[in-house]
């Protein structure tokens, strides 16, 4: 046995010992049960500040704009909400936003599922690498840059139209309309959806598919009765993410819609910064948050708490 000679202990160990002693003095062991809360604190603070902001917005939404002073009146009223209901343009914008969210979400999920499935199941390492790179590349390009990229490709004198005219076909209006926004949004949301579906498919062992096949199901039935139901948590998760991101999107309708097909977020922006009516903007924001929360809650309620990996009964 060697005697404990402090000379043999590396300096980094001594440093760690010191740190440990320091930690014990400022954080006695009996406080250890609060460690979890300690780590949660920054997140709670962040959410708390957001809630304060939300409180202010709700407060604003109940004050009418005084057109004489361009400030919010001191007394409470529902004028802003009446404006929303009485002006068809706002209901129209809400309807458009909801429609786009549903279309974008459904098409994105339909495109994302085979991609994720292929990525998980392929036996070729080359293929998997290619799919992974193609998946992560778009993340390095921001939404605004991407939207401008589409302008360059789809614009009046853009890439697509120059090809069309060169082969004698008429020019097409490919941007500044609803379809362009939907197209841009799908392209933007696809990687998110794929990333959320991948773990769901990974968790389905290939044995389940083989078992189904062996029991007499062709691949269509296997997909319908085994893969799809077992991937439900991932699908619901990505549905919620894509839907809420689309519903609250600003850049795509702004750039690819060019003001022709505003979403709620654009209307909120305009209220705050174009017509300088923070009360109306706040009311629209409150409605957006409320509708989004109701939809997400409803989805989780009907799809069960098994989604997102949160299970009441663990096994």
């Amino acid at each position: 046995m060697q005697s404990r000679n402090s000379k043999n202990i590396p300096a980094s160990w001594k440093l760690l010992d010191l740190a440990e002693r320091l930690l014990v003095t400022i954080w006695p062991a009996r406080l250890n049960k609060y460690v979890g809360w300690g780590f949660l604190l920054p997140a709670l603070l962040l959410v708390g500040i957001l809630l304060i902001g939300l409180g202010y917005i709700i407060e604003y939404s109940f004050h009418e704009l005084d057109l004489a002073t361009y400030r919010l009146k001191a007394e409470y009223s529902l004028t802003n909400y009446h404006t929303f209901i009485n002006r068809p343009v706002y209901l129209h914008i809400l309807g458009r936003t909801m429609l786009a969210s549903i279309i974008v979400t459904i098409i994105t999920l339909i495109l994302a599922f085979p991609y994720a499935y292929m990525l998980v199941r392929t036996r070729s390492a080359m293929m998997r690498k290619f799919l992974l790179i193609a998946l992560f590349l778009p993340f390095f390009i921001g939404q605004v840059v991407r939207a401008y990229g589409w302008l360059i490709i789809l614009g009046k004198q853009g890439f697509v139209n120059s090809i069309l005219t060169s082969i004698g076909l008429p020019e097409l209006d490919l941007i500044y309309n609803f379809q362009a926004i939907v197209f841009g949004l799908i392209q933007y949301m696809l990687p998110f959806a794929i990333l959320l579906i991948i773990p769901a498919i990974t968790s389905i062992s290939e044995d389940f598919e083989l078992a189904s096949e062996g029991l007499g199901a062709n691949w269509v039935s296997t997909f319908r009765h085994v893969v799809l139901p077992m991937a439900k948590p991932g699908l619901v998760g990505s549905f919620v993410v894509v839907f809420t991101l689309t519903m609250t999107d600003f850049a795509m309708p702004e750039i690819l819609g060019g003001g022709t097909s505003d979403f709620i977020a654009n209307a909120i922006y305009d209220s705050f910064f174009q017509i300088s009516n923070p009360g109306l903007g706040a009311a629209l924001s409150v409605l957006l948050v409320a509708i989004g929360s109701i939809i997400v809650t409803a989805i989780f309620y009907f799809a069960g708490t098994g989604t997102l990996g949160i299970r009441q009964k663990t096994r």
């Binding site: 083989l210 078992a211 189904s212 062996g214 077992m230 439900k232």
Partner: peptide, 20 residues
């Protein structure tokens, strides 16, 4: 003959009972 057209019942190592 593809697997789903053969008349074979198989019990897998991890059983692969459909959890849903």
């Amino acid at each position: 003959t593809p697997a789903h057209k053969r008349s074979i019942g198989m019990v897998f190592q991890k059983l692969a009972l459909f959890p849903h």
